[in-house]
């Protein structure tokens, strides 16, 4: 994965979610990542450590609170599309409505 990532497509998004990368947002993020053939990774800093965005165990272990800047990168088939889709999900606050956000 490291080698492929050297030609990766990258971007940065600020998590705007009310509570951070908690259980429900992490489920959505990993599910979406898994829908792409590309390798997709996230990080809390521009220079990593990079985390497999398809593993909820690893994404949750990052313990990213609200207001964290999330970095995304992907490599392989439809990499650009994968990054754009994940970025959009985070920017939409993981599609969490008002009633959901309070207890997520």
């Amino acid at each position: 994965m490291e080698d492929r990532m050297s030609n990766s497509v990258g971007t940065s998004v600020l998590i705007t979610h009310e509570v951070g990368l908690h259980a429900r947002p992490s489920v959505k993020l990993t599910k979406l990542a898994k829908s792409f053939p590309a390798d997709v990774e996230i990080a809390l800093a521009p220079d990593g450590p990079w985390i497999d965005a398809k593993s909820i165990v690893k994404v949750m272990a990052a313990k990213a609170p609200k207001g964290t800047t999330l970095h995304l990168r992907a490599a392989g088939e439809r990499a650009g599309e994968a990054v754009a889709a994940l970025k959009a999900l985070i920017e939409r606050d993981f599609d969490e409505g008002e009633d959901h956000a309070r207890s997520a």
């Binding site: 259980a23 429900r24 992490s26 489920v27 990993t30 599910k31 497999d52 593993s55 909820i56 165990v57 690893k58 949750m60 997520a104």
Partner: peptide, 16 residues
């Protein structure tokens, strides 16, 4: 249900 789906996702993850 959301909580159970989270547990299910964790349990289905090879990393675990």
């Amino acid at each position: 249900a959301d909580m159970l789906e989270f547990q299910l996702a964790m349990l289905s993850d090879d990393a675990l």
